[in-house]
Design a protein around this nucleic acid. Structure first.
Lengths: 256, 256
DNA sequence: CCAAAAGTGTTACCATTACACCCATGC
DNA sequence: GCATGGGTGTAATGGTAACACTTTTGG
């Protein structure tokens, strides 16, 4: 558990106190959305990957670091979506575990026990690119977003709010670009949107709309996969796409 | 300056350290959007109303308190929209001013000097209900959002992002409900939307759309005002409205 | 009487929706 | 051959946009 080491290294005043960053890391595989969760010492409860903010680190960098520590992925996409700041929000159980392990001198009144503010991010990653390297005693695993295990604190709420946030901003979120491989098929892209929206979308209309954005380039290749007609492969026009993303412009208009 | 008192009262460890809440308080008057700013000791720069988070206080409560302290308004509408967490974000100038005034024993290394995280809220208030009660040496004043004075730090950016956030969520933000008096006219309501969107909207289509939400009740009164035909007065169906708001549902669909 | 602002109704248009039909593949 | 999934075209629909005319009021 990385945080243990960091705190233990008596660098605990290298962090901003009473503040953490947690990441809802999302990927798409097997036609469902997955979220990455962590468990320590085979405990009962899973938890979102999280971290503390170094004193010389932007909070966005913290989120990128947390993402990298759990997935080995860099330069992907992280976006803050909510600061959870209720006064009773604290991971007492977790603090106990950490503090009894590392036994700092101020364990009794250590700030880890006190109230926490948590800034939540969602991250979109390509499932196939993820390389998990859990630490000793740590476990990392994907879960379907609609079949979550027992979670610490109210982390299931955090995940729900992440999904709702993405849903309500769906036209601005680079779902396909960040969750699909370089080359992808239209049914795959559509499936992501259907998962997020929780409803089916018309095949043909979806395709038309996506093509009409001008952000998607058809390739002269098909994907041989199932026992059916091979779907075409596409890729994104990365430059155009990035420009819209950088300026917070709408990528595609989805109306519900 | 309230914060001075609070810190001075040696209750400085009653706050979460290195964390502040700042409010972009918006109102509508004279057909333009106004933002409330604060200035201390007739200094050169204005600043957004802000505050520290009490240890036993939700961050939302802090925002409500900051709003109340500057406008006397309670039970209005505050919404967090972004946490500013760059590593170089600190109000050195402000910290100096506070610390030289109150001279705490740990002034040199006081956490007020260190890096700050700021959670930004926007608040929507009814202009006519605002009662400013500035403290000694403190000044409060409205400014047109497009004619801002010189601001501390990057607070003009914060205001811009607040407006952009509202714009991109425009259908979900209770603009009229929170910024207009009990009874209002359709041209007034439209003017707010035009300010936020930065473009004119067709009178008739706007009216139709608003009425069709079912959230607006026409009254059998008109407002006698200018040298023109008196516009009808309307009020909101508060119950229906609140229900949508509570469930994060769309109030009205504005398409651009 | 005129200018300015507000109320109401109607039409044209375009984007979304809802389909139907054909093609490719593996069993 | 057939079931399944993918590709493409078209007609119907419904909401939005554009606009004309009337009414009211103060100067």
């Amino acid at each position: 558990m990385r945080i243990l080491k960091e705190v233990y290294d008596s660098r605990h005043n290298e962090f901003l106190p009473q503040f953490s960053v947690e990441c809802v890391i999302l990927a798409f595989n097997d036609n469902v959305l997955k979220v990455l969760l962590r468990r320590v010492d085979m405990g009962d409860n899973w938890i979102l990957p999280w971290g503390l903010v170094h004193k010389e680190e932007d909070v966005d960098e913290t989120a990128e670091r947390v993402l990298k520590e759990s997935t080995s992925i860099e330069n992907s996409y992280v976006k803050q979506f909510y600061l959870f700041g209720q006064k009773d929000r604290t991971d007492k159980e977790l603090a106990d575990k950490i503090l009894t392990t590392i036994q700092p001198k101020d364990a009794e009144n250590h700030w880890l026990r006190s109230r926490f503010l948590s800034l939540a991010y969602y991250a979109l990653v390509e499932y196939g690119k993820v390389r998990m390297e859990p630490e000793e005693g740590e476990e990392l695993s994907w879960f379907n977003v609609d079949k979550l295990p027992s979670l610490f604190a109210k982390h299931d709420q955090v995940i729900k709010i992440a999904l709702r946030t993405i849903r309500s901003n769906i036209g601005y979120v680079p779902l396909g670009r960040k969750m699909l491989p370089e080359k992808f098929t239209m049914p795959e892209l559509r499936a992501i949107y259907e998962c997020i929206l929780g409803q089916e979308l018309d095949r043909r209309n979806f395709q038309r709309k996506m093509i009409s954005t001008g952000l998607i380039i058809p390739l002269n290749e098909t994907l041989k996969k199932g026992a059916h007609k091979s779907p075409h492969l596409y890729c994104f026009d990365k430059e155009k796409y990035q420009e819209l993303l950088d300026n917070d412009q709408e990528l595609v208009r989805i109306i519900l």
